[in-house]
Design a protein around this nucleic acid. Structure first.
Lengths: 340, 340
DNA sequence: AATGTGTTTGCACGCGCGTGCAATTTATTC
DNA sequence: GAATAAATTGCACGCGCGTGCAAACACATT
């Protein structure tokens, strides 16, 4: 009724309001909210008190605009059929958030090219874009980088040859070597490699490492088939198809899979369609250690990526704690269960 | 070499730069980028040309700040063990993006209470916060809403009693009724209900509907067990535990599960631990129709939520096309496979 | 009390764009 | 061709906060 001050029409309460109530300047208010700012304990308490009663919170949008740092990281994913992505998302969002970074999730399944999505991310001034998908090529990365605006481009859980890019991934070569050694030691001699999409950039991947290693050891290159997406269903179809074309079943005693998503499909195919047992008739070995791999039904022998370490590594890169390495490798761990 | 204009130190190119090059005012430049703005075709072309050569893109941060609309939606999830979440994420991000909305993903697994996460979201001025998890209670929602700043609070794929909230979900009651009818028709008479966490808000959920319906039909309330999280592993343990306590196996001819995450665990338990067949010995019916449900190994009979329609519904609510309904129901579809 | 050191505080200016309206240009009509 | 309507363009002001520095203050020392 009486005098209602110059309160804003709606109820956005800004630092100015708090400042007035606390009897300090606006800048002191914002300082109070900065972790290690130069401010006395007393005035910080005054400010916090006032902020409390007014329900004030600093506006990250305005802050980002002014400071040119958004504390926002963009995650680009196109590979939603692979259950491992959910694990990654969980881990990444958790670790990022613990470090004060928020996550912008972009689904690039629709895009021909990730460039458009990257552009979109750049419009939000994200501090970094993290690629977790499979569709992007080194060339499209280059294009996107040309437009700049995305300060850091990070390829997660995969390596990229683009020098302007930082890769954070499991050491695939060491991993496949370990897997190969394990297989050989266990006496498997007729492997089939089940690979993912081949269209991606020509990095020395799991398939290449395995085939080469096997070639070196036995002088023969194992057979392989590839699946168009990391999708258990497609893997299932592919395996069924393979054995339809190669009726001499005893030509394969183990299927080595590029990841668990494929491995799960392979197991299903072996049991359901071929009517065989895993691992007695055909063994299966995966990669990633998705939750399903540990289920009673699959008991998948697989290789666990050190996701937490990788996520922490990502944060280090983002914070600039460890500059200019184009590639950060992490060692994983072979998890032996029953499927191989 | 010669004169290099007053180019900014780093290379952020703003609308002003484009304006200068195109020979128009800054406002015309920004208009050119607005879908249906009042601008002549000719000057739009001029602007777009200049923007192209300069590599200009409008800054969404500044735009959000000025317009007070961020086109950002915050998704809060805590339930990463449930594979269905990945499907939801895929669908939501896709549909939102198609409608010009970006997605902020927040992992609330760590939080005692979603309030903190909501507060964080509010600092980014998200246009809406969408809750997809299970941990939040109606009370914590109320608290969060008290602080305002989050313009719209939406509960997705679940109903909430909070009147300031908009629920977008599958019609659980209709669904469970259909499921019950199906079960009854198929001759099952000894159901066990496998429920999720019971700590959540007291909405009339799938369990209640099923139990009540069965009670009405047969005068007896079926047994039920509940699992602490929607996690196949925990469901497995729970089912194993149940049958350890109830050795008279023929007391159950079907396990009705609150969702597929649980159903998958149930199937594993039945086969692996009990050594029984699905559906011959014990049938299983799920809910959600996760990708796994369609795999050769599970062939789960389940109920598919109309995710796309729900996502579109979400967009409508966000755009304000369909105001003030506290609850939007969508009808799903029973998917009959082999598990029941 | 004067000097010096270290700590707090205040402030001018800018981040890049939106809003609403007024000025200007272009199209339309008789 | 003048008058009127319609389409297009320009602009002052503000969104909420950060940066870097200078002024103000506190405290210890001689």
């Amino acid at each position: 009724m009486s005098q209602m001050e110059n309160q804003r029409s709606d109820e956005t309460v800004t630092a100015d309001d708090v400042a007035k109530l606390a009897g300090v300047s606006r800048w002191t208010v914002n300082r109070a909210f900065k972790k290690d700012a130069s401010i006395s304990r007393k005035s910080r308490e005054k400010v916090m008190g006032a902020a409390q009663t007014l329900g004030y919170v600093p506006d990250l949008l305005a802050s980002s605009l002014a400071s040119d740092r958004s504390n926002l990281v963009c995650l680009l994913i196109d590979d939603f059929a692979n259950p491992h992505k959910l694990v990654m998302l969980e881990r990444l969002t958790r670790v990022l958030r613990k470090n004060g970074l928020d996550t912008l999730l972009v689904n690039t399944s629709d895009e021909e090219d990730t460039s458009a999505a990257l552009l979109n991310a750049s419009q939000r001034r994200v501090d970094a874009a993290v690629l977790i998908g499979i569709q992007f090529t080194d060339r499209s990365l280059a294009t996107a980088l040309g437009a700049r605006r995305v300060r850091k481009l990070i390829v997660f859980a995969r390596s990229s040859e683009n020098p302007d890019t930082i890769s954070i991934c499991c050491d695939d070569r060491a991993a496949m070597n370990e897997i190969t050694d394990y297989i050989v030691e266990k006496g498997y001699r007729k492997p089939l490699f089940l690979a993912g999409p081949q269209s991606t950039s020509a990095h020395l991947g799991r398939k290449e490492t395995f085939l080469k290693r096997w070639q070196d050891a036995f002088g023969a290159t194992p057979d392989f088939v590839s699946v168009a997406r990391y999708d258990p269903q497609l893997a299932y179809d592919q395996v069924v198809g393979y054995f339809a074309d190669h009726p001499a079943l005893n030509n394969v005693d183990i299927i080595v899979c590029e990841n668990d998503a494929l491995a799960v499909g392979a197991v299903d195919a072996i049991r359901t369609k071929l009517g065989l047992r895993v691992p007695e008739d055909i063994a299966v070995i995966g990669f990633d250690d998705i939750p399903q791999a540990d289920s009673a039904n699959y008991k998948l022998t697989t290789y666990r990526q050190p996701l937490s370490a990788m996520a922490e590594g990502l944060v280090e890169v983002l914070k600039g704690t460890s500059e200019n390495e184009h590639l950060r490798h992490f060692l994983g761990k072979l998890v032996v269960r029953e499927s191989a």
